[in-house]
């Protein structure tokens, strides 16, 4: 291209190779050049201030520092994004707001929190994350596990250990051991069948009423002793963590998932034969008091706290 757009003739570099070989000189636009120089200056200033160049195992730290608190002591380090995040979490505007809310919640009683829509909303937002990190692995993200059996559903209104905030807090803080002995070696198949018919009779109309009546006798007899924990009315005891067998909620036997009466009976029989052994670990060592409080309110509000 001998000519530029504006019709200005392009100069050569003034040097000739091999007699007649010349090179056009198209200098960079001035604004571009100055932007480049400014970038260079910026880069050098940046090197001086911030971590930049890798040096073997280390790096040039730069002269800018950042001060934050660690274990009650002030720590000053060279500027880096990780330290900046820590400082931001300690002194950032939003962090301080969150801290103020947390202080308010940690000092309030359960009654005050539950009756205050603002605090409840804060607790639900914050505890959702805590629940996801600590509880959801077993209980499911929304407090409802994918399958009936292993873990209790926290979204319904049936509680094994009580659904008041005090009960829930105790469950989280100290854990629970849910235990029902295996009756497979104690009772014979006919007895287990009768018991299963009795247990199902609370929710199914089609069970054999004779078997159910026989089952009720076994349930209340010393031979099986079911009523020790489940009570004579089969409504369960919070102190034992025993399930209410008369309500519509199934927490161990997957009756809703079974198709047909035989399968449902089989699900109940399985529990009677093999017993139940479930454990909720204690969280007192892993979560702070405030975190336990947040989770208590959250779980209480999920589906039907008492």
């Amino acid at each position: 291209m001998a000519e530029q757009q504006h019709g200005k003739a392009v100069q050569t570099t003034g040097h000739a190779w091999d007699g007649d070989l010349q090179e056009y000189n198209n200098p960079l636009p001035t604004w571009w050049l100055w932007t480049f120089y400014a970038s260079c200056v910026f880069a050098i200033v940046y090197w001086v201030l911030y971590p930049t160049w890798p040096l073997g195992k280390g790096y040039t730290t730069g002269i800018k520092t950042i001060t934050f608190e660690e274990n009650g002591k002030e720590v000053t380090t060279n500027w880096n994004t990780r330290a900046r995040l820590i400082k931001e979490m300690q002194t950032g505007e939003e962090s301080l707001k969150q801290k103020a809310y947390l202080d308010k919640v940690s000092q309030a009683s359960y009654q005050e929190i539950v009756n205050d829509p603002d605090m409840t909303a804060f607790v639900n937002s914050m505890a959702k994350g805590l629940f996801g990190d600590n509880c959801a692995a077993c209980h499911g993200v929304g407090g409802t596990p994918a399958m009936i059996g292993q873990y209790p559903n926290l979204g319904d209104d049936a509680w094994l250990w009580g659904g008041k905030v005090e009960n829930i807090e105790q469950t989280i803080r100290h854990g629970r051991l849910g235990y029902m002995p295996a009756f497979g070696t104690v009772l014979d198949d006919a007895q287990i069948d009768a018991l299963a018919n009795y247990v199902l009779s609370f929710s199914e109309d089609t069970v054999d009423s004779n078997k159910a009546a026989a089952g009720e006798k076994i349930f209340k007899s010393e031979a099986a002793g079911c009523y020790y924990c489940h009570t004579t009315g089969a409504t369960g005891l919070y102190s034992q963590g025993s399930a209410n067998l008369t309500d519509a909620v199934w927490t161990v036997a997957d009756v809703p998932g079974a198709d047909g009466l035989d399968a449902k009976l089989e699900a109940v029989k399985g529990v009677i034969r093999n017993g139940v052994k479930r454990e909720m670990p204690s969280w007192s060592g892993r979560l702070s008091d405030t975190e336990i409080k947040l989770l208590t309110v959250y779980v209480h509000g999920l589906g039907g706290g008492q």
């Binding site: 499911g140 319904d156 209104d157 519509a248 909620v249 589906g303």
Partner: peptide
Amino acid sequence: VRQPIFVQLSDGRIQNS
């Protein structure tokens, strides 16, 4: 609330939140 989309209540009713 879609997680869970419904729960069974002890009195037989269904609950959505």
